[in-house]
Amino acid sequence: MPKGFTFLPSLALTVAMALPLAAETQADADTVVARVNGDEITLGHVILARASLPAQYQEIDDKQLYDAILDQLIDQSLLKQAQDGVVPKHVALALENEERSLLAAETIEDVLRASLTEEALQAAYDAKYANGFDEDEYNASHILVETEEEAKAIKAELDNGADFAELAKEKSTGPSGPNGGELGWFGKGMMVPEFEQAVIGLEKGQISEPVQTQFGWHVVILNDKRTAAAPELDEVRGELAQKIQQDAIQAKIDELSKGAQIERPALEGVGPEVIRQLDLVQE
């Protein structure tokens, strides 16, 4: 592990981190594992430092990693003490930001834990899919050619009774040509807009006029149409959970905002470019 590595937890880490249950031990987070000129380093400091390490370091043997982390914390304590108790402005501000972030993360964790229940998931699922899944799916075939003239000629042949699949095998330049132009089932948003609009406007068995897309000119036939079946709860569990949690966090922020006194004083003569002025936080 490189010397000088700084162990600063982040908001994302705090929200995501779930420390495993420790084996039975008489030690706790307040157990002192080192003192540097009287400043205590505890087991809790070591545990959180290890939890904030990149994944590649966490694979190191526990004994080696423990010693390396403790060495780092001791070194950092010595370097910290060299400041003789002086806390530079930028450090104080960074610590305030970090404290704000970590405590906000604790509130978020509480909200997430309370909001994500099986009852909430089932209610969200029922609200979205109680009346089925009202999206149409389409089964279509097409013949793709390079020019409008070719497409019009193909449409004329089809209008005179030519077999669509045979004509696709003979003349389509698209990869579906050998399969008679069949594209299988697809939903909205899966095809380029011009092609999708042409398909949506067709009745079952109807053949379109030539349609131009970025790929060339198409003649399309709608083979079939159906309403997509609603997915099972487990198939959309992750999507529903994310929405429930996002809504719960926003609701908590809205609730807190209503009862808070929030002021944003106007800064005369100060523009947004001020955020780049690092010299303002230097002493």
Score class of each variant (00 low, 15 high):
Pro2Asn: 12
Lys3Glu: 15
Lys3Cys: 02
Gly4Cys: 03
Phe5Lys: 04
Ala22Asp: 12
Glu24Leu: 10
Thr25Cys: 11
Ala29Thr: 03
Asn37Ser: 15
Asn37Met: 10
Gly38Arg: 03
Val46Ala: 11
Ile47Tyr: 01
Ser52Asp: 00
Leu53Met: 10
Leu53Ala: 01
Gln56Phe: 10
Gln58Asn: 08
Glu59Met: 13
Asp61Pro: 02
Asp62Gly: 01
Asp62Glu: 12
Asp62Met: 04
Lys63Leu: 15
Gln64His: 07
Tyr66Glu: 10
Ile69Gly: 00
Ile74Met: 14
Gln76Ala: 11
Lys80Cys: 07
Val86Cys: 05
Leu93Gly: 03
Leu95Asn: 08
Glu96Ser: 11
Asn97Trp: 03
Thr107Glu: 09
Val111Arg: 12
Arg113Ala: 13
Ser115Thr: 04
Leu116Lys: 03
Thr117Glu: 06
Tyr125His: 14
Asp126Cys: 05
Tyr129Leu: 08
Ala130Ser: 15
Ala130Pro: 12
Gly132Ala: 01
Phe133Tyr: 15
Asp134Cys: 02
Glu137Val: 02
Glu137Ala: 06
Tyr138Lys: 05
Asn139Arg: 15
Asn139Tyr: 15
His142Phe: 03
Glu148Asn: 14
Ala151His: 02
Leu158Cys: 08
Asn160His: 11
Lys169Ile: 03
Lys171Asn: 04
Thr173Ile: 14
Gly180Ser: 09
Gly184Ile: 07
Gly187Asp: 11
Lys188Leu: 14
Glu194Thr: 10
Ala198Lys: 06
Val199Tyr: 10
Leu202His: 04
Glu209Met: 07
Glu209Pro: 04
Gln212Met: 14
Thr213Cys: 11
His218Gln: 08
Val219Arg: 01
Leu222Phe: 03
Asp224Leu: 09
Pro231Glu: 09
Glu232Asp: 15
Asp234Leu: 07
Val236Thr: 10
Glu239Gly: 07
Glu239Asn: 09
Lys243Gln: 15
Gln245Cys: 06
Ala248Trp: 00
Ile249Gln: 01
Gln250Leu: 07
Ala251Met: 00
Glu263Ser: 14
Pro265Thr: 03
Pro265Asn: 09
Val274Lys: 11
